[in-house]
Design a protein around this nucleic acid. Structure first.
Length: 307
RNA sequence: GGUGCCAUAGCUCAGUUGGUAGAGCAACGGACUGAAAAUCCGUGUGUCCCUAGUUCGAUUCUUGGUGGCACCA
């Protein structure tokens, strides 16, 4: 993506990251208003329409107060990957920075944030037909056979990959078979320079407080009608977009696997586990400066202090 | 008030013929490049209620407490 010359000096992307339920949305909107910035969502599930409650999209008031991008503008039936996100978000930023010094990126999808800030390697897009075949082979022949083939085609990657993770093995094999070249030959691990500055802000708090907030938010989702929202999406339950905490448990409840009370419990537990995975991901990013969600002033001061 | 049963991990419990203990769930730590709210890997975190005995050694046996449950009054 070629940056266009913009009139704005020192365009700056304010990245707000953090675990689910930590209050990123509220903080992001608060900062966006202070800095006159639009909001770009870095959330892999809030992009979809029809998932307002379960993915905790911003409220109507928030959407009205500040322009938002990548919120509810895809159908759940559309394929939207981290690579799609990277290229579309960069194109969008190019336009936004023509008029704004600041853009606030808010969301909890670590891979999306990395794609936006550092860039993904140039890899071929997934060939869904080939993936289907490999998934079929996975269930027929087992992971070991696929890992063995990966060892043949890409010994270097085989050395380092988590060979017990079907998603990793299948994806690597997929690229090898598709391109005739080892998967690792595409992986540079390098960062792509972006034509804007990046300030990273993390939102977090005590684990106990976070978990209490998550539990409360799940109850609020139920009150807001998560069950009906999930029912409306039941037909699409097999799609990647619906492999999402909150919906999966509801679908299982609809299928009679357990009762509603159990479903709610599982949504809370799985949200906590998701939050933990996010904390692990963001924890290794030393560029992130962490704040409590109530500390809007401190976060704003940090941004100002960066120039 | 009396009798009986129970007390072990965050929870529900198992167990140790006396050598400081283990399951399930919960929890905790980590990985992560076009599926990423996905996918995968790893980890028992414990005054075995308190007290005084017996014993080389007590979470286990005995005494006395404390708390809980049940039944009888």
């Amino acid at each position: 993506m070629k940056p266009t010359v913009s009139k704005i000096i020192d365009p700056t992307l304010i990245v707000i990251a953090g675990p689910t339920g930590s209050g990123k949305t509220d903080l992001g909107v608060a900062l966006a208003r202070r800095f006159g910035a639009p909001v770009l969502s870095t959330d892999s599930r809030q992009v979809y329409r029809g998932m307002k409650i379960g993915s905790a999209q911003p409220s109507d008031e928030q959407l009205a107060a500040v322009p938002h991008y990548f919120i509810a503008d895809r159908e759940v039936t559309e394929r939207f990957t981290c690579a799609d996100f990277e290229s579309e978000a960069l194109a969008l930023l190019d336009r936004l920075f023509a008029e704004h010094k600041y853009v606030v990126a808010v969301g909890g999808s670590g891979l999306y944030i990395d794609a936006l800030c550092n860039g993904l390697d140039e890899l071929p897009d997934a060939d869904m037909e080939l993936r289907g075949e490999l998934t079929e082979r996975l269930s027929r022949e087992g992971l070991g056979t696929l890992a063995g083939q990966l060892r043949e085609l890409d010994p270097a990657y085989w050395e380092t990959v988590d060979r017990q993770n079907p998603a990793r093995v299948v994806r690597a094999l997929e690229v090898c078979l598709q391109t005739g070249k080892p998967f690792s030959s595409f992986r540079t691990g390098g960062k792509t320079e972006r034509p804007f500055r990046i300030i990273k802000i993390g939102v977090t708090m005590d684990r106990a407080e976070l978990y209490a907030r998550i539990d409360r938010r799940v109850d609020a989702m139920m009150d807001a009608g998560l069950e009906a929202e999930a029912r409306a999406l039941y037909l699409f339950r097999a799609l990647p977009s619906l492999q999402t905490v909150g919906y999966r448990e509801m679908f299982a409840y609809f299928d009679g696997e357990y009762g509603l009370e159990r479903a709610v419990e599982l949504i809370k537990r799985n949200s906590r586990r998701y939050a933990k995975r996010q904390l692990t991901w963001f924890g290794r990013d030393v560029e992130i400066r962490w704040f409590h969600p109530s500390d809007v002033d401190a976060a704003a001061a940090h941004i100002v202090a960066q120039g």
